[in-house]
Simulated assay, not measured.
Amino acid sequence: MKIKGSGEKVKSQRQQQKERTRQRLIDTALSLYAREGLLATRTADVAREAGVSHGTIFAHFATQEALLNAVIETFGTTTAGRLHELASQGSSLREVLQAHLAGLREGESFYSRLVRESRMLPNESRQMLVAIQSVVSHHLCAAAEREMKEGMIRPQPLHLLFNTWIGLLHYYLANDDLFAPEGSVLERYGEELLEHYLSLLAP
């Protein structure tokens, strides 16, 4: 029994080390994707930056696309968690938009790359971006429906209301070299975009 318990402990430590390595690869890839681009970054670049052998990448991710999808999924989970945390049930539309901006600011460089290169990504990767947007849409539309019923904003199709917000954000993020070449687009324009968007909805 004692030997078995020792073996189980070693196995647990190995599993923990494996999980730590996997997370380091994801974190490293996210940083490189943000800096160099999703399509320009190679698995060899990630391995070198993370300080591991190239083969280590494929011990954790079967393909380059699998690594990319893991990074997008991690980013989406973090962003969704931030949105759930900041925009609880019953939040106002303003609070939902502020929470969305706050969540995106934390990974703005990567998200900007994702927005710019999304049409060139594999279909599964693009669908993961759609899943991230669905979480935002859920919160935004729930708040908008309540405020339309209360006469606080003008009645309008929810899909247009959501697409207008996303389109506005994505235009600025996709052209960050014009709007904030040496800084954060959302830090510089986020509040202005939010106020402009809400002004369009005023009754």
Rank of each mutant, 00 (worst) to 15 (best):
C141P: 04
R116C: 10
E145C: 01
Q98L: 15
R126P: 02
S137M: 15
A131R: 15
V136S: 07
E150H: 13
L140K: 08
R113I: 04
N123L: 15
I132D: 11
A99I: 04
N123M: 11
G103T: 08
Q156A: 08
E106W: 07
E117C: 04
E145S: 07
H139P: 01
I153P: 01
G107Q: 08
E106P: 04
M148A: 13
M120E: 13
S125K: 10
H138N: 10
G107H: 09
M152K: 15
R126L: 11
A131D: 11
A102Q: 05
E147T: 10
R146K: 15
P155E: 11
L140R: 11
L104M: 08
E108F: 05
R116T: 10
G151V: 10
L121G: 04
L121T: 02
L129C: 05
E108V: 02
H100I: 02
E150M: 14
A142P: 11
R116Y: 03
L129E: 08
I132L: 13
E117L: 06
L104Q: 06
L114E: 04
K149S: 10
E117Q: 09
A144W: 00
L114R: 01
E106T: 14
A99D: 00
H138Y: 12
V130T: 09
L129S: 10
L140P: 04
A143V: 05
A102K: 00
Q127C: 08
L101V: 03
E117F: 01
A143Q: 03
E124T: 15
R119M: 08
S118L: 12
L129R: 14
M148E: 11
S125G: 10
E150R: 15
R119T: 14
R119G: 10
K149T: 07
E145A: 09
Q127W: 08
R119K: 13
A102G: 03
N123E: 14
E147G: 08
F110S: 00
I132P: 00
E124H: 11
E117I: 05
S112P: 00
A143P: 06
Q98V: 15
K149P: 02
L140E: 07
S134T: 06
R105N: 03
A144K: 00
R105V: 00
M148R: 12
E145Q: 10
V130H: 11
H138G: 07
G103L: 03
E145Y: 03
R126H: 05
G103S: 13
Q156T: 02
E106L: 14
M128N: 12
G103Y: 08
Q98N: 13
R113L: 01
R119L: 12
S134R: 14
R126Y: 06
L101Q: 03
A99M: 02
N123Q: 15
R126C: 06
V136G: 04
V135S: 13
H139Y: 10
C141G: 04
Y111H: 11
S112F: 00
H138V: 07
S118D: 07
P122Q: 05
H138C: 03
M128F: 03
A144R: 02
E145W: 04
L101Y: 01
S118T: 14
G151M: 13
E108H: 05
V136D: 05
